[in-house]
Lab assay of single mutants.
Amino acid sequence: KYSDMIVAAIQAEKNRAGSSRQSIQKYIKSHYKVGENADSQIKLSIKRLVTTGVLKQTKGVGASGSFRLA
């Protein structure tokens, strides 16, 4: 599940300011076997996790910027 992968990526990075979408994508692609549409799936999952309150956006708008666990 992409949401689990995103949470794992943010936990692994341990950046106080949060993790960027690009760094999350890079982590997921190197640690998991994902399909061609992974980028758009990650983007959608990040937006969903922010609206449900699992992630907090520290910089930027939408799916860009930095995110950390709430």
Rank of each mutant, 00 (worst) to 15 (best):
Lys1Met: 10
Lys1Asp: 13
Lys1Ala: 10
Lys1Val: 09
Tyr2Gln: 00
Tyr2Thr: 02
Tyr2Val: 05
Tyr2Trp: 15
Ser3Gly: 09
Ser3Cys: 15
Ser3Ala: 13
Asp4Leu: 11
Asp4Ile: 11
Met5Pro: 01
Met5Trp: 12
Met5Leu: 05
Ile6Tyr: 00
Ile6Pro: 00
Val7Asn: 00
Val7Gly: 01
Val7His: 03
Val7Ala: 12
Ala8Cys: 13
Ala8Leu: 05
Ala8Val: 05
Ala9Arg: 03
Ala9Ile: 03
Ala9Phe: 04
Ile10Arg: 01
Gln11Met: 14
Ala12Cys: 13
Ala12Leu: 03
Ala12Val: 04
Glu13Leu: 15
Lys14Gly: 14
Lys14Trp: 07
Lys14His: 12
Asn15Leu: 05
Arg16His: 11
Arg16Ser: 14
Arg16Ile: 11
Arg16Trp: 11
Arg16Ala: 13
Ala17Ile: 08
Ala17Pro: 03
Ala17Leu: 11
Gly18Gln: 03
Gly18Ile: 03
Ser19Lys: 04
Ser20Leu: 04
Ser20Gly: 04
Ser20Tyr: 03
Arg21Tyr: 15
Arg21Thr: 15
Arg21Asp: 07
Arg21Gly: 09
Gln22Lys: 09
Gln22Ser: 11
Gln22Ala: 12
Ser23Trp: 14
Ser23Glu: 09
Ser23Leu: 04
Ile24Val: 02
Ile24Gly: 01
Ile24Asp: 01
Ile24Glu: 00
Ile24His: 02
Ile24Cys: 04
Gln25Lys: 07
Gln25His: 08
Lys26Leu: 12
Lys26Trp: 15
Tyr27Trp: 10
Lys29Asp: 03
Lys29Gln: 07
Lys29Pro: 01
Lys29Tyr: 10
Ser30Asp: 11
Ser30Arg: 08
His31Trp: 04
His31Glu: 02
Tyr32His: 02
Tyr32Cys: 05
Tyr32Trp: 06
Tyr32Phe: 13
Lys33Tyr: 07
Lys33Leu: 09
Val34Asn: 03
Val34Glu: 03
Val34Tyr: 03
Gly35His: 06
Gly35Asp: 10
Glu36Ile: 12
Glu36Phe: 09
Glu36Trp: 09
Asn37Ala: 06
Asn37Pro: 02
Ala38Leu: 11
Ala38Val: 09
Ala38Glu: 05
Ala38Pro: 04
Asp39Tyr: 10
Asp39Asn: 09
Asp39Ile: 09
Ser40Leu: 13
Ser40Ala: 13
Ser40Arg: 15
Ser40Phe: 13
Gln41Ile: 12
Gln41Trp: 13
Gln41Tyr: 12
Gln41Leu: 14
Ile42Pro: 00
Ile42Gln: 01
Ile42Val: 05
Lys43Thr: 14
Lys43Asn: 15
Lys43Phe: 14
Leu44Gln: 10
Leu44Arg: 15
Leu44Tyr: 08
Leu44Pro: 01
Ser45Pro: 01
Ser45Glu: 15
Ser45Asn: 13
Ile46Thr: 01
Ile46Asp: 00
Ile46Phe: 03
Lys47Asp: 12
Lys47Thr: 08
Lys47Asn: 09
Lys47Ile: 13
Lys47Pro: 03
Lys47Ala: 12
Arg48Val: 10
Arg48Ala: 10
Leu49Met: 11
Leu49Ile: 02
Val50Phe: 03
Val50Glu: 03
Val50Leu: 11
Thr51Gly: 08
Thr52Val: 09
Gly53Gln: 03
Val54Leu: 05
Val54Asn: 02
Val54Met: 05
Val54Cys: 07
Val54Lys: 05
Val54Asp: 15
Leu55Cys: 01
Leu55Gly: 00
Leu55Asn: 00
Lys56Met: 13
Lys56Glu: 13
Lys56Cys: 15
Lys56Leu: 14
Gln57Leu: 10
Thr58Asp: 08
Lys59Val: 08
Gly60Asn: 07
Gly60Glu: 05
Val61Met: 10
Val61Tyr: 12
Gly62Leu: 05
Gly62Ser: 07
Gly62Trp: 07
Ala63Trp: 09
Ser64Asn: 13
Ser64Glu: 15
Ser64Cys: 14
Gly65Thr: 14
Gly65Leu: 14
Gly65Ile: 15
Gly65Asp: 14
Ser66Met: 14
Ser66Thr: 13
Ser66Lys: 14
Ser66Trp: 14
Phe67Met: 03
Phe67His: 03
Phe67Tyr: 14
Arg68Pro: 02
Arg68His: 09
Arg68Asp: 05
Leu69Trp: 03
Leu69Cys: 07
Ala70Cys: 09
Ala70Thr: 07
Ala70Lys: 05
